[in-house]
Amino acid sequence: MAHTFPSVEWFQALADIANGDDDLKKFGTLDATVVFKVAEQHYSVTFDILQARDVHESSADDALEADFVIELSPEKWQGMIDDIQTNGRAGRDWTLNTLDMIDDEPIHKNLGQDGFAADKFHRYGPTLQRFMDNSSQLETEFAGAAVTT
């Protein structure tokens, strides 16, 4: 079944995979609320130690409460997901770390300018990358685009 990106269903499916992924635990705990921003849409996922829960679409105001927001253009989100699906994991040009560094503006930020919370992007980086890499298991269709597997 194809899941449309971006949508609550897509992130929920990713959370479900994470919650059953024993290998993800080897990358360490993830204790943060993360908002994924796609254009003007915000999707919040609360990572509670080893569980991804409370997946919901949130408002821009709610994003202020997140530990950090990851913002990419729709084209870059699609590029990352396509790359993960092609290779089974993000290649060098499409990891969260690379995307965060390659342009002048990092892709992650705490909207309240709380640097301690923003640093959690790196503190939980390997686990978060594994979370995104699991999208290789999701049949994804992009809003207004063809299905990719």
Binding site: G28, N97, H122, G125
Partner: peptide, 8 residues
């Protein structure tokens, strides 16, 4: 990447 998480 692994050392980066530790360092943070």
């Amino acid at each position: 990447g692994r050392c980066l998480a530790d360092k943070t």
